[in-house]
């Protein structure tokens, strides 16, 4: 498979909720599945976990007499601006040219700054290993010319993988509404892309998919620290040091004047 920016595109229109993707993720990554009880919904386990990097969410929505069962695949969105990678002080989160955002476990120190920075609430901390885990977009498969495991396992092509722009253009031309190719300045664009015709206009509606596909994904405090506190803080520190050097020169000149006057 050629190198370059890739996307995994999920369309809930074709998803049958079989969870083959969820199983394939566990198999390929050798992550232990959770033993769970039935949750109030069919989503099982109910949320992402350190060893559960993707979850199929089942949501019942209805308007008037109509009723829909939505299937939504949840995992890391693999943002191009990757706020998690920017927040990581250990440089443990790599953004690959394919678009995969990957946590290097040998570098992760478990500080959870990535958890703070992620607006999609994806990275999961494991207190036993003191490390953070999430979907890797199967970077090990991509680099060996294979599709991500979840895509390979999907029986209905609800998950497809390919060159980013090509895939998005193809689906857009076919009349699909897209989430991910241009989100905002905080996350950039996401390499997990969502496309729908059936629920057009509802992708960012919280009743449907909008509780995860946020209109303006952003962590205000993290964003403020990054764009205001640190640049302004360093600038003021620099100005202070320059000011003190200036004071040193001024004080020295005054002392020299005094010495001169004393000598006269």
């Amino acid at each position: 498979m050629a190198a370059g920016e890739k996307a995994i595109l999920f369309t809930p229109d074709s998803c049958i909720g079989c969870r083959a993707c969820q199983v394939a993720c566990h198999v390929w990554n050798s992550t232990r599945p959770e033993v769970t009880d039935f949750s109030p919904t069919f989503t099982n386990p109910p949320d992402l976990l350190p060893n559960v990097w993707t979850v199929m969410e089942y949501k019942e929505v209805g308007e008037g007499d109509s009723f829909d069962w939505l299937f939504f695949k949840r995992q890391c969105m693999h943002c191009s601006n990757a706020p998690c990678a920017e927040a990581c002080p250990a440089g443990a989160i790599e953004v690959h040219p394919e678009g995969a955002v990957v946590i290097r476990q040998d570098k992760c120190i478990g500080c959870r700054y990535c958890v703070e920075a992620c607006p999609y609430d994806v990275p999961r901390y494991d207190p036993i290993t003191n490390k953070v885990y999430k979907c890797t977009m199967c970077i090990d498969r991509l680099q060996n010319g294979l599709e991500p495991a979840c895509v390979s396992a999907c029986p209905t092509d609800a998950l497809v993988f390919g060159d980013y722009d090509e895939l998005v253009s193809k689906y857009r031309a076919a009349g699909y509404e897209i989430y991910g190719d241009s989100v905002n300045d905080y996350v950039g664009r996401t390499h997990y892309v969502y496309a729908t015709k059936r629920w057009a206009g509802k992708l960012t509606d919280p009743t449907y998919f909008g509780d995860h596909l946020l209109k303006d994904p952003r962590k205000p405090a993290v964003s403020f620290t990054r764009s205001v506190v640190r640049p302004v803080g360093w600038a003021l520190t620099g100005l202070t040091l320059v000011g003190l050097l200036g004071h040193l020169a001024l004080w020295r000149s005054k002392r020299m004047e005094e010495v001169k006057k004393g000598g006269e």
Binding site: A221, V229, V232
Partner: peptide, 30 residues
């Protein structure tokens, strides 16, 4: 945590600036 992290960062910069002035005035004026 997010708020605490931002406030800790702000505190850091204020401390560094304050300490720079304090140490300078205490040590560099004969």
């Amino acid at each position: 945590w997010e708020l605490a992290h931002t406030l800790h960062d702000i505190g850091f910069f204020l401390a560094v600036i304050g300490l720079a002035v304090h140490v300078y005035l205490a040590t560099m004026i004969p």
